[in-house]
């Protein structure tokens, strides 16, 4: 079992292990994992160093949403809105929120500066898309939150240049009392190509679910998709883009459902059948005969 070499590991290694556990926490469970890791480490200093490094990437990757301190709404924590390590832009309200990553709360909020916001020309496209997207998200996700960021060309003043938006949709449902948590994350990159007069979309959709009452079962699913449309006026672009997002996300939801429906009788069968090939329970009572005819049994085993 534990041989001498394993007895003591260095602090650096302990911190790396702690970070690994935190990074692999399912959606909405990092605080529970943190509690366990802290008690296993028995060293608050190492834990705090690990948490300091592990929480920010986790929060951004999971697109966690935090309530703004003035209760004006929720902000999504994502790389697209990152001003610096602790400050995140909320493009809809043009505010920058200061975030405590480890506590997962917003501590204060300020108005964004002009430098942090896109030009009026870009904002017209961004705002139009945000309005359409919000309508869609309200309708499709009972607990969805979305944001539209300008990720390239935010200072473009008018037609003639390319720019890019990133759309994120984050929905999570946490019910630890029912041993069940889950999250939906979509990230859409939308490139407005001026020379070709096209808008190109590429999406990454990710769904996770965890059920852990007397067990541990997790769903991890993701999908990439692409689409494109013509460059039009801001409102028309917004409608066309939102329609494409809606269609792809609906198609993905339907395909997840189809994967589940195929499970019991097809997919799962390749692991273990419900009943033996003979369609009757295994004849354990006649095992005595089996062992008497061991050679035949062996043959059977090979033939099947």
């Amino acid at each position: 079992m534990a041989d001498g070499s394993e007895e003591e590991i260095g602090e650096k290694q302990k911190k790396e292990i702690a970070k690994w556990f935190l990074a692999n926490a399912p959606a909405g469970e990092i605080q529970y994992v943190a509690k366990d890791v802290r008690s296993i480490l028995g060293d608050d200093e190492i834990y705090e160093m690990a948490a300091e490094e592990a929480f920010p990437p986790y929060n951004k990757a999971h697109l966690i949403t935090l309530e703004l301190p003035d209760r004006s709404g929720d902000i999504i924590i994502s790389t697209f809105g990152e001003v610096d390590m602790c400050n995140y832009l909320d493009p809809r309200t043009a505010q920058v929120a200061t975030v405590d990553h480890v506590k997962q709360v917003c501590t204060k909020v300020r108005a964004a500066t002009d430098d942090e916001l896109p030009s009026p020309y870009i904002e017209e496209f961004r705002d139009a898309l945000d309005v359409e997207l919000c309508k869609y998200v309200d309708e499709a996700y009972p607990k969805g939150i979305c944001a539209v960021y300008c990720t390239k060309g935010k200072d473009v003043e008018g037609p003639g240049s390319d720019f890019e938006f990133s759309v994120v949709i984050s929905a999570s449902k946490l019910s630890p009392q029912n041993f069940c948590n889950g999250s939906w994350r979509s990230i859409w990159t939308i490139e407005f190509k001026d020379d070709l007069q096209v808008v190109e979309l590429s999406g990454k959709l990710q769904v996770g679910a965890h059920y852990f009452e007397e067990g541990n079962v997790q769903l991890d699913s993701n999908n990439d998709c692409k689409d494109s449309t013509m460059m039009q006026a801001p409102e028309d672009c917004a409608v066309a883009i939102t329609t494409m997002i809606r269609d792809h996300e609906a198609e993905y939801t339907a395909s997840l459902e189809a994967s589940y429906l195929k499970l019991p009788d097809t997919t799962f069968k390749d692991l273990r059948r419900k009943l033996p090939v003979t369609r009757t329970l295994f004849p354990w009572h006649s095992t005595l005969q089996f062992s008497l005819n061991r050679d035949i049994t062996k043959e059977l085993g090979i033939e099947k």
Binding site: A140, Y141, P142, K143, G144, A171, S172, K173, C180, N181, G182, S183, W184, V207, A209, H210, Y211, G215, V217, Q218, L219, E249, T253, A254, L256, E257, Y260, L263, P264, F268, R272, K274
Partner: peptide, 22 residues
Amino acid sequence: RNSLDQVYFGKTREMVCTLRPP
């Protein structure tokens, strides 16, 4: 096998439907 299929996988499927209902 049955509880993995019906209960455990079923719960994750329910979760997907809750996040983004069909």
